[in-house]
Structure formats: C-alpha cells, structure tokens
Amino acid sequence: MTDLVFYTHPMSRGRIVRWMLEEVGEPYRTEVLGYGASMKAADYRAINPMGKVPAIVHGDTVVTECAAICAYLADAFPEAGLAPPPGSAARGPYYRWLFFAAGPVESAVLNKALGVEVPPERKATVGYGSMNEVLDALEGAVTGREYLAGGAFSAADLYLGSHLAWGMQFGTLEKRPAFETYVGRFRQRPAAQRANAIDDELLKNAGGA
C-alpha cells in the first residue's frame, strides 16, 4: 500500500506529473480515469471539483493543477533534489519559470489554438502580452544555460520542457533552435523514458481512448 495516489489519463497533462513522480522515485498508485463519467463522478469531484486530471492525494493532502503538483512533490520529497533549497538564490528563478510556464505560456498557447487575437492596444490587459514576447522570454531563459535554476535539473525544467516538447510536436509553439536544444537535453533521462513507456502502454491498452 502507498499513501501517494495519482489520478490521470494517459492522454492528458497527467503525463507531466507521471514524469515528475518517476523522477521523485517514491512508490505511488495510479488511478486511470476516462474522460466523461468517471472524471465527473461524485467521488472524484470530492478530490477535484473541476472533474479534471491530473490530481494527487498524498496522505490527507490533495493537490491539483500540474505546476502545483510538481512544486508540491519537489518539496514533499527533497531527497530527490528537484527544487533548489528554500531561501537559496536559485529559488527565485525556479519559481519564476515554473509559474511563467503555467501562466503566460499556457494562456498564450491556448489563445493561439483557439484563434483568439488580442488587439495590439489591449496587450496590457493580458498577462502574456503577445506570443512573440512569451517566446522571446523563454528563449532568453534557456539560452546559454543547461538548467533554469541553480545549475541542476529541477521541477521547473521538467514542467517547462514538457510544454515546449508538446507545443513543438503539435505546432502550437514555434520551433526555435534554443528550444530544441533545451528539450533534447532531457529526453534521455531514465525517469522521462519510464514515464512515457508507462503512459504509452496505458494508451495502447485503452485503444487510444
């Protein structure tokens, strides 16, 4: 038995959390939910009222939202070394880029996918300004350094790297050499490969549904 339970679907943002869990290396139980009835069922809505995955339950603690789950796991299991120590200088850029990916990057990518155009005179009213500004900021963050914070791989690299990889694969983010170099650095991590293999197998067994 384990007190760490992971709720997911193999074709969801849960793939990010799966990678994080594999990096952490602690035992966990996976509960796969289908889109529709099982995600909207009352027992799962008691965990996440939004009826969406991913979510984790760790003992009596419930955490939803990918970036929050990654940040929580990094702090809950510090021996995995997935976050700079609290109070260190690296903690600032760690939080900065983890939540930049969760906020401006996600918002800009979603609006682009939906065909939402922000009029130039209204840029100040959206958190990301424009897609080009987001991409330029990201390019500056990953150029000339191996990792985002503290000279070591962290949950911020995992989260941002996942978004960049997904966006470039499906054409929602521009392929820039700096992004491809940054993402390529993490593809061969054993935890990333294990996580992908687990979710790919779940997806195959589910018939892609």
Rank of each mutant, 00 (worst) to 15 (best):
M1D: 13
M1S: 14
M1E: 12
P10D: 07
S12Q: 09
S12E: 03
R15P: 01
R18F: 00
W19S: 03
L21D: 04
L21E: 03
E23G: 10
V24Q: 04
E26Y: 04
P27R: 08
P27I: 10
Y28S: 06
V32Y: 11
V32D: 02
V32I: 15
L33D: 06
G34I: 00
Y35A: 03
G36D: 00
S38P: 15
K40C: 02
K40W: 01
A41R: 05
A41K: 02
A42P: 05
D43A: 13
D43T: 06
R45F: 05
R45G: 08
N48V: 04
N48C: 08
K52Q: 15
V53M: 07
P54H: 05
P54Q: 09
P54G: 09
V57L: 02
V57K: 14
V57P: 01
T61V: 15
V62Q: 04
V62P: 02
V62H: 00
V63I: 15
T64S: 10
E65L: 02
E65N: 08
E65D: 13
I69C: 05
I69A: 00
A71F: 06
A71G: 02
Y72L: 03
F77K: 06
P78T: 10
A80H: 10
G81F: 03
G81R: 04
L82Q: 04
A83T: 09
P85N: 07
A89L: 14
A90P: 07
Y94V: 10
W97S: 12
F99H: 15
F99V: 11
A101W: 04
G103Q: 04
P104E: 12
P104H: 03
E106V: 14
E106N: 09
A108K: 08
L110I: 14
N111K: 12
K112D: 09
A113N: 10
A113G: 12
L114G: 09
G115Y: 06
P119H: 13
E121Q: 15
K123Q: 15
K123Y: 14
T125Y: 11
T125C: 03
V126H: 07
G127K: 05
G127A: 13
G129P: 08
S130L: 03
S130T: 15
M131I: 14
N132M: 03
N132W: 00
N132G: 15
E133M: 11
V134P: 13
V134A: 13
V134Y: 03
D136V: 11
L138F: 09
A141H: 07
A141Q: 09
V142I: 07
G144T: 08
R145C: 05
E146W: 02
Y147E: 06
L148T: 07
A149E: 02
G151H: 08
A152G: 13
F153T: 04
S154Q: 09
S154K: 09
A156K: 01
A156S: 13
D157P: 10
D157E: 05
D157H: 07
Y159E: 09
L160K: 06
A165D: 11
W166M: 08
M168R: 07
Q169M: 10
L173T: 02
L173Q: 04
K175T: 10
R176V: 01
P177F: 06
T181W: 00
T181D: 06
V183D: 00
R185Q: 02
R187W: 08
R189F: 10
A192F: 09
A192R: 02
A195T: 06
A197Y: 05
I198G: 01
I198D: 00
D200W: 00
D200M: 05
L202I: 06
K204E: 05
G207K: 05
G207M: 05
G207V: 08
G207F: 00
A209G: 02
